[in-house]
Design a protein around this nucleic acid. Structure first.
Lengths: 142, 142
DNA sequence: ATCTTAATTCGGAATGATTCCTAATTAGGT
DNA sequence: ACCTAATTAGGAATCATTCCGAATTAAGAT
């Protein structure tokens, strides 16, 4: 779903430099992608291997990577933002008790009941958002 | 979609008190619900009528209302949180240029192309989230 | 109408994830 | 090896939101 070689190749394609810090961050991302890690987990894990990684760099790198499309960022207000290595369309099942985030691949139709049956996750609230540009803004720019 | 009487009735049903501050906030919510207002807009608008509304109260009230299900909160990390008076299932179309949030009622299938055709909103990124409780947490509580 | 009390309010301080700033360092092409 | 734009560190700044403790008040009970 996400792997070291791909990330490094994409990084090079986008004209980004491969630094020891970024390598440590990439390793942490690949190792933890199932957990949808946040900046603090990446920081902690990257530090184990490379002591010279600062929190600023972790933030800058994760931002850079998600802006360039290597990973996807899941943003929250009270919870730490999380990063997702699964770039295909899917639903993130976010546990309000423990913060665990599970992937749920989209079937033809999206039914909370199906989700509960298949994954044991009980949906209490749905959040679907499509980001983009509204008609007025598109018009204003044209 | 949201109206003064309903909000006041629900508030009473939930055992909450109707204060002048809350009335001002309710009026601001009803007046601005199409804009999916944030705390600052509600604060500004509520102040016009009732000078004695503090920002703390606005935050506390919006939090209380969304926890009790009178409104729905849309949470963001860098953007101010926004509040939605449309409690039926729908997609929020969030403009990354100007922050406008439009409602898009769910048809049978959800196609970005259909959205563009009908609303002029061009989707660049999708975000769908179902909140709830994962199997492990449910097990732990039982 | 007054009393009672739990809920509500206020304003300011605290929080905490994230961004910003600036100087120093460095990756990678020439 | 050299150059230069990119990257990094780390500490300060940001900013929406929450927390705090004291004062006020809505609304049911007497």
């Amino acid at each position: 779903m996400i792997n070291k070689e791909d990330l490094i190749n994409q990084l090079r394609e986008k004209g980004l430099k491969l630094t020891p810090q970024r390598l440590a961050i990439i390793n942490a991302l690949v190792k933890n992608w199932k957990a949808h890690p946040g900046a603090s987990l990446i920081y902690k894990d990257a530090r184990k291997k490379a002591k010279s990684v600062s929190l600023s760099t972790v933030y800058a790198t994760l931002k850079e990577f998600s802006e360039k499309g290597l990973i996807k960022s899941l943003e929250f207000d009270r919870m730490e933002n999380r990063y997702d290595g699964n770039l295909s369309e899917h639903i993130n099942l976010i546990c309000e008790s423990c913060g665990t985030i599970l992937d749920y691949n989209l079937p033809a139709t999206v039914e909370p009941k199906d989700i509960a049956r298949k994954s044991g996750f009980v949906v209490t609230e749905a959040r679907m958002e499509y980001y983009g540009h509204c008609r007025d803004c598109l018009k204003r720019k044209a």
